[in-house]
Design a protein around this nucleic acid. Structure first.
Lengths: 343, 343
DNA sequence: CTGAAAGCGCTAACAT
DNA sequence: ATGTTAGCGCTTTCAG
């Protein structure tokens, strides 16, 4: 590998001057600088980032931990982060926690050794504890919060997004609206549930436990929960599903049960995706500014690394995209007074 | 940050011994080793990878460049690579080329400075040239080949996959089979086209230029190409589409034209995906062992880094997955001798 | 404005 | 089996 010393030799200066010429041009005579630049060019010099980092204790590297790179939502977050980092000459070390606190911990340990200057993390349930590993490092929580006090985060406005989705359903006349909700130790799931409750309240509808089923964020969980919800004697006429993967499962379950969307069942999902658009009927969804979330988180982090104070935490707005999976409910067979259905 | 020196002090040994105890346990007395390990544990010591890499000229880092992390196919490749690397204690530096040779070049330059020990790359059109930047580095080409002589690659068996797909169509009785094919400077596109030709030949069908339209791998390209193919006076009864993104476009185009799948048009895509399964009708596709491609590429690379000789290049088999987007063609209105349709 | 020298944290020779 | 010493490539005092 071509080193700075060889460049210096060719330019007939000391390594120190060569270094300055390349990195602090203003400290060096124009003429000398040009000689060095030419020499570097000619030899195809590439600075050894490791040596530089070791010396300056600044690696121009940041860490990124997402929970599932195979989920297009996370892939998009990652791209937002990467693009922003690259624009500023930072390299991203990306890891996958697969929602497992253990993998997250290992990722943090590995990361640590690379002397990152900052970290962007989509938290798991244990992130609060795990972050001790990198104490002192500037951290941005992305998409969710770990609940750690004083944490800085870039999030979507989940409450409002969910409220809008469910209000859309109540406005259409739905009165039995089921929800498939994520694990309550994940902040997005809690917030979306809250939005659901608020929208029900606003429409004067009661909150019914039986209509809210939990799922572990995966397609299979969504399918299972939907099966249960839709097999109830008085089944919901609409479903609000708390994340993208579970929405697939819910739609597949509806198909299996022979329910026609949206005539017999309206569905709104959270987070837009390719298949939400290609599905027939195309899904009505709460879209998140995913790429921007990643991008802003990274810009934030880099500004803090650059010495700026922490900006206030941000909630980016969501957008309800009306497509074809929602419509007014079928006229229900009129009901007798509650509980009177036993012959 | 806790350094080796402090560990050494606490364990009352020299830094060198501490280093050995941690990294070459067999060179050190059991008792000493335990003291060092305990000290390290107690102080929460994390080795500074940068310093180690600088000294040993071995960073335990490999580079990965994919062309589009938002494409689930590439995300899956990446996960295969990452999982395999992590298993062996290697860290992956991942970059996106977005199919742009320029971004690929910049990624390589950045990578270079981090002294990676190997590289896995999904090539773009200029990879052959760009790789000069990291000459001497072990490189595995993944999914595609750059055409560079002596390159090592881990690929899917595209020719055979395409042949199988198109043979499936000919077996169903299709005789006008269109293909939407990728850019011919990408090896997968060339190979899939060849498979298409072979299958036609095997069925005694002529190869017709008018039935083969190029696209630039994106959804929009697929849509456009399909629009053209399906607007021909004597339109194809089946379509074979050369990659996953373009298949979405093609299906959407068919919908826009009011064509019912599979009755009026059969479609086979290359590469399976979430939406290929959720689409109705669910798509018949040539599935690739995507995760395994990434995994094997990484295992390969690491074995070479470890001093093993290069294994022979590999072609992993594809699988035709029959779903609901293919069926025998409609009985065509019988045709008069060619070209006689002007009144 | 430029050079000499020291040192970031670690490990590999070379001693003992 | 352990300590001593040197140096990976770079940047940064400190002198000139």
């Amino acid at each position: 590998m071509i080193g700075l010393e060889e460049v210096a030799k060719l330019a007939r200066v000391s390594p120190a001057t060569a270094s300055r010429a390349l990195h602090r041009p203003e400290l060096v005579a124009l003429q000398t600088r040009e000689r060095v630049e030419e020499a570097a060019q000619q030899l195809g010099y590439r600075p050894n980032v490791l040596a530089r980092s070791l010396r300056t204790r600044g690696s121009r590297t940041i860490g990124l931990i997402v929970t599932d790179i195979l989920n297009p939502f996370h892939a998009t977050l990652a791209k937002g982060v990467q693009d922003a980092a690259e624009g500023q000459g930072y390299t991203v070390l990306m890891f996958n926690s697969d929602e497992q606190p253990d993998k997250e911990r290992r990722a943090l340990e590995t990361l640590q050794g690379h002397l990152p200057q900052g970290l962007i993390v989509v938290p798991t349930a244990q992130t609060g504890d795990n972050l001790q590993i990198v104490s002192g490092l500037p951290v941005v929580e992305l998409d969710r919060t770990s609940g750690l006090e004083g944490a800085h985060s870039v999030l979507a406005d989940n409450v409002s997004g969910a409220r809008e989705a469910v209000s859309h359903l109540t406005a259409l006349g739905h009165r039995r609206i089921g929800m498939i909700v994520g694990r309550q130790d994940v902040s997005t799931a809690r917030e979306r549930l809250q939005g659901y409750r608020e929208a029900l309240a606003a429409a004067g509808l009661p909150y019914q436990e039986a209509l809210v089923l939990p799922g572990n964020h995966r397609e299979a969980d969504g399918r299972l929960a939907a099966m249960q919800l839709l097999s109830q004697r008085e089944r919901p006429t609409a479903l609000f599903v708390g994340n993208n993967e579970m929405t697939v499962g819910a739609v597949l379950a509806a198909r299996e049960l022979g329910l026609e969307l949206p005539r017999e069942l309206s569905v709104v999902g959270f987070d837009d995706s390719r298949w939400a658009q290609t599905l027939s009927p195309a899904l009505t969804v709460v879209a998140q500014p995913t790429y921007e979330l990643g991008q802003i988180a990274c810009q934030w982090l880099l500004s803090v690394i650059g010495g700026q104070p922490w900006p206030d935490s941000v909630r980016l707005p969501t957008t309800l995209i009306h497509r074809s999976s929602t419509s007014p409910p079928l006229a229900q067979p009129s009901r007798h007074p509650a509980g009177a259905s036993v012959p």
